[in-house]
Write a protein that binds this DNA or RNA. Structure first.
Lengths: 242, 242
DNA sequence: CGGACGTTTCGGTCAAGCCCGAACTGTCGC
DNA sequence: GCGACAGTTCGGGCTTGACCGAAACGTCCG
């Protein structure tokens, strides 16, 4: 390991370009994308995307897997995803005007519930975090940590497989939500919660975007488990109410 | 608050330039620097530095305070410092060859003990973290957290002022050390420890750089409090031993 | 007041790098 | 094998922005 100064400018430079940043933001959905998909998403030519993606892979932010005539690209890992979300949360907002009704709906849905690499983000994720706290499953004393009741809940809700050893706690990290500017759960717990909510049919991954929708079953489950009111479980209405 | 996409490229772009990155790295010492000092440090003309610093202030990464004919610049806050250290830890190393003996000494000293905004970093900081863990003051069960003995130690060592309320824990964050590639203590505890070690005369801030030296009193105190061996308390020798 | 000093503004030079289209390589399916 | 498709390479046009020196501005101090 050559013992030189860390080249912050080189790493930041990888993300300092509209197309490359757009790629990374898109890949925050945790899935693998092809070159063509990413190029279309960012609105650049495929040849341009190829060059950018080469840089991102060389720089270690992305990994690639070549299969046949396809090249699949993913974020290199959850730490990379965290770095990007961290940056996104602190970045200035570029005021992109709403162009259509579907645009407004999509934006509202994205702010409500979306994938953040391997866990849930958006106002729903914040509501779940708050609900777990209010129900005494999660404590923020010192650091975020599951209470004994929280551990028991994981087991009865079948989120944790089998009976955990005494003293066991899942690894918790917090992730700064860039739409809510508040913390939601990430780390092993956040990922396990998300996986469970999908397999149990509480959430459905609607399409190719990061948008997630809460099913009727999910709404009922969250109301029952965490006592979340319906107001917290629906995207905000676009009416004229204050 | 305009509800647009986060402009990651804009934020990253601020750090994607050698001079600007150098400024931020220098300011990680937590002190305020003037334009001329930063220009000299980064090896650019003062006029060039002015332009860069304007951008960094506008972008919210730095704050300025104008006093007379001086303009003092600091990092905007501890969260900004963490973002930069985070980036530095993941950034590739640019192999800058050692040019002189003083160069080598400075590099070794920097890797051994340095300021990281408001807490200590380097192999000494990692050794202290390890020592506190081995002494049962700190536990990594779940999350890093002081044990009851750790809390008591803070009080007897006079690091925490007065008697804390029952159930109190100082806020702990971890910071990825870019020379050691291991975690050391940051957050409120890291900052309190550092302040105490300086005021108690265990550490001395030698000069204008981030380098910190451990005093004789500090060496004795750490041996007594945490049982750290002398080998962990000195910068590695540059000899031929394997 | 006048000189020293810290900082800013301006103009001009220069290099870096983003972008695209067109041609090319390799893979899949009929 | 032959089109359709995914991706890469190359060359040229173009914008961006980093850099410096010189001049101007403001503050401090004798």
């Amino acid at each position: 390991m050559p013992d030189g100064h860390p080249d912050v400018a080189a790493l930041a430079g990888l993300l300092a370009e509209r197309s490359r940043a757009a790629f990374c933001l898109a890949l925050l959905d945790g899935h693998a994308w092809t070159v063509t998909e990413l190029a279309r998403y960012a609105g650049v030519a495929v040849s341009t995307a190829t060059g950018h993606l080469n840089l991102l892979v060389e720089g270690g932010l992305l990994t690639e897997e070549r299969r046949g005539r396809h090249r699949y690209l993913r974020l290199a890992g959850s730490d990379t995803a965290e770095l990007i979300e961290n940056l996104a949360a602190r970045a200035p907002r570029c005021p992109s005007p709403v162009r259509s009704l579907t645009d407004a709906n999509r934006r509202r849905a994205l702010a409500h519930a979306r994938v953040c690499y391997d866990h849930l983000a958006g106002s729903l994720a914040v509501a779940i975090t708050d609900g777990m706290t209010a129900s005494g499953l999660l404590t923020w004393q010192d650091d975020p940590r599951l209470t004994d009741r929280g551990i028991a809940w994981l087991v009865t809700a079948d989120i944790a497989k089998g009976t955990p050893p005494p003293g066991w706690h899942p690894h918790i990290r917090t992730c700064l939500d860039w739409t809510e500017q508040r913390l939601h759960l990430a780390g092993a717990l956040g990922a396990a919660l998300y996986r469970h909510m999908v397999t149990a049919g509480w959430l459905s991954e609607t399409g190719p975007s990061r948008i997630i929708t809460l099913t009727t079953a999910g709404r009922a489950a969250l109301r029952q488990h965490l006592g979340l009111p319906d107001a917290a479980l629906a995207p905000p209405q676009g009416g004229l109410s204050p």
